[in-house]
Design a protein around this nucleic acid. Structure first.
Length: 577
DNA sequence: GCCGTTTTCGGCCCGACTGTTTTCAGTCG
């Protein structure tokens, strides 16, 4: 049997149905339903597990028809309806819509009137000049189309958060230095801490918006200017990443930030709710449709309070029930970076870190943590290039750790990121682990074993009385979806055995990620937010872990390293019995 | 196609910018 499809694969199929339906001339609200459903699938826990428990239709925007199609896709990889649409339209037709500047109207006209059905066809039509036979396509539109094709070909897929966020900070620093802009803030998917982003959104306020916009489009790194208006501009960087800037008056900053933080689905739901209260919400303020009065919100919090709901943190704005929770007073108070008292996962030069034991501990102390642990790799019993510690090296390290910590005024715990072997045993014997203060256990090798074997492997690790944290539980990396296992079974085992699941802040991992965290919460799992730092400069990556925790609705009470030291020791002691 | 603290039928978010236009359609977010 084929492996069950990932949420991303299911969402892509739904979007494909959506687009082909539009080509087929189906009604607007019918095909838009598939777009909303795709968004919900993307942000949900693993779909096959929701189906197994009969809770698929609890997702927003998924009713009887679409639920049926999703179940078909999960069983057979596709559904009859999609197959039928794909019969009628060539598979390459969708390439046209991926060209910036080409929308549905243009694509339909090109297909129906010129027989253009692929990117290659479009290039030929541009070359031969036949494209000018279509109405409303002048010189500039055609030039933009040529440029759009180049951008499409050179464009990478989505950009990882770990690359986008530093870039956003760079743009903001540039604008702060060179323009009369205030309130400069990253909005959009970067602010929401999505794992990957399609573009970067920056907002600011100014009483001289023209000066801000002209400096922005004149930035050295801008390869092309896509749009330049009086309050809004877009540029492309080399590689095709798009940056959008929006400037509004100071008194509208709250509305502006709310609007451009999204998500799209969140905003649609927010505005639909507002309309029912006779209020029209946009970046230009909230208009009371009865009195005609506009409410300008200086702060984002005022937008939500004007609508009669609790403030919703940016990371939670996915259109996945947060508005209902904010209205009902059941939105959890999510953990913040400032709530953390320590960090359980970091490496030094004893294994594969870049800084010495002393440098790491000193840097941790400088961050103001009460405690932390040094968790160098185990040596993995010869299964790979050995960069970890063996038992005697670990004992040697342990003899130094506490003394150095005391010198810098921080409680340094002795730990190990011990490998979980293929059968679920650990790389150190129990009596060796018993000498440590806390133990992180992770899968690094034999990642392609079967789903059942992987499930059993991780559960067995959870059942070891000395394992306190499962490090980066799914193995997700930028170009790897993570190994397959029964998430629900592992979450249940973690909760049952008093084993925490890590939210790893290394920007190449971000594992667990938001939707899985939210799923795990239902099982009563305890989490840790860790940096997985391999050098002092990476300790700040813990903020990415907190971002994912917030996307997963995690409170500080659910985070082990937001608790006092004695509670951490009690957590370890309780499992050892 | 989905959904409900006005509705199980009749609704369904909002606005900026561009290019080709004599007043607006198309695209995008």
């Amino acid at each position: 049997m084929a492996a069950s499809p990932t949420n991303t694969e299911i969402a892509e199929k739904l979007l494909r149905i959506r687009t082909l339906m539009e080509f087929a001339g189906e009604p607007f609200f019918k095909f838009m339903a598939y777009e909303r459903a795709a968004s919900a699938v993307q942000n949900a826990g693993p779909i096959p597990e929701l189906i197994a428990r009969g809770t698929l239709r609890e997702l927003p925007g998924i009713g009887k028809t679409i639920a049926g199609r999703i179940e078909e896709i999960c069983v057979g990889g596709t559904c009859a309806y999609l197959a039928e649409l794909e019969e009628r339209y060539p598979p390459t037709l969708m390439e046209l819509l991926d060209v910036p500047g080409v929308g549905m109207k243009t694509a339909t006209a090109m297909f129906e009137q010129l027989g253009v059905a692929s990117l290659g066809d479009l290039e030929a039509a541009l070359e031969s000049g036949r494209i000018t036979e279509l109405p409303r396509l002048g010189k500039k539109s055609i030039e933009n189309m040529r440029r759009g094709i180049l951008a499409y070909k050179g464009r990478k897929a989505r950009t990882p958060l770990g690359k986008a966020l530093p870039l956003a900070r760079e743009i903001i620093a540039f604008l702060r230095e060179r323009t009369p802009a205030d309130d400069l803030t990253t909005a959009g998917s970067v602010r929401r801490q999505e794992l990957t982003v399609g573009d970067i959104d920056i907002v600011c306020t100014s009483d001289r918006p023209d000066d801000v916009v002209s400096a922005f489009v004149g930035w050295d790194a801008a390869e092309a200017v896509l749009a330049e208006g009086s309050t809004k501009a877009s540029i492309w960087l080399a590689g095709g990443l798009q940056i959008d800037l929006r400037v509004l008056p100071r008194e509208l900053y709250g509305n502006l930030l709310q609007h451009f933080t999204g998500s799209r689905e969140h905003n649609i739901q927010l505005r639909e709710y507002a309309v029912r209260k006779n209020l029209r919400v946009s970046e230009n303020g909230i208009v009371d449709l009865e009195s005609g009065r506009t409410i300008a919100c200086r702060r984002e919090e005022e937008v939500y309070s004007a609508l009669g709901m609790a403030f919703i943190p940016a990371e939670m704005r996915l259109g996945m029930g947060e508005i209902e929770a904010a209205l009902g007073g059941t939105l959890p108070a999510v953990v913040g970076v400032g709530d953390l008292r320590g960090d359980f996962h970091m490496h030094c030069t004893w294994s594969d870190g870049a800084n010495s034991l002393e440098e790491m501990i000193s840097a941790v102390a400088a961050r103001g943590y009460a405690y932390h642990s040094i968790s160098d790799h185990s040596w993995a019993q010869g299964t790979r290039t050995q960069y970890g510690l063996n038992a005697s090296q670990l004992r040697e390290q342990r003899a130094k750790v506490r003394e150095i910590g005391e010198r810098f005024g921080v409680r340094t715990l002795c730990s190990s990121e011990v490998d979980i072997l293929p059968d679920g045993r650990l790389d150190f014997a129990d009596d060796e682990l018993a000498e440590l203060d806390i133990v992180v256990a992770s899968v690094h090798t034999a990642t392609n074993i079967s789903r059942d074997e992987m499930t059993a492997r991780i559960i067995r690790a959870c059942e070891n009385p000395y394992v306190n944290v499962i490090g980066h539980p799914t193995g997700r990396m930028e170009a790897f979806a993570g190994f397959e296992f029964d998430y629900d079974a592992v979450f249940a085992a973690a909760a049952r055995t008093g084993t925490a699941l890590e939210i790893d802040g290394h920007p190449g991992r971000l594992d667990l990620s938001g939707p899985l965290i939210r799923r795990a919460r239902d099982f009563g799992v305890t989490f840790t937010c860790d940096s997985d730092a391999h050098g002092v400069s990476q300790l700040e990556n813990i903020a990415y872990a907190v971002g994912q925790a917030r996307r997963g609705w995690v409170t500080k009470e659910e985070v082990l390293n937001a608790r006092p030291m004695e509670d951490v020791l009690a957590f370890v002691a309780a499992k050892r019995g």
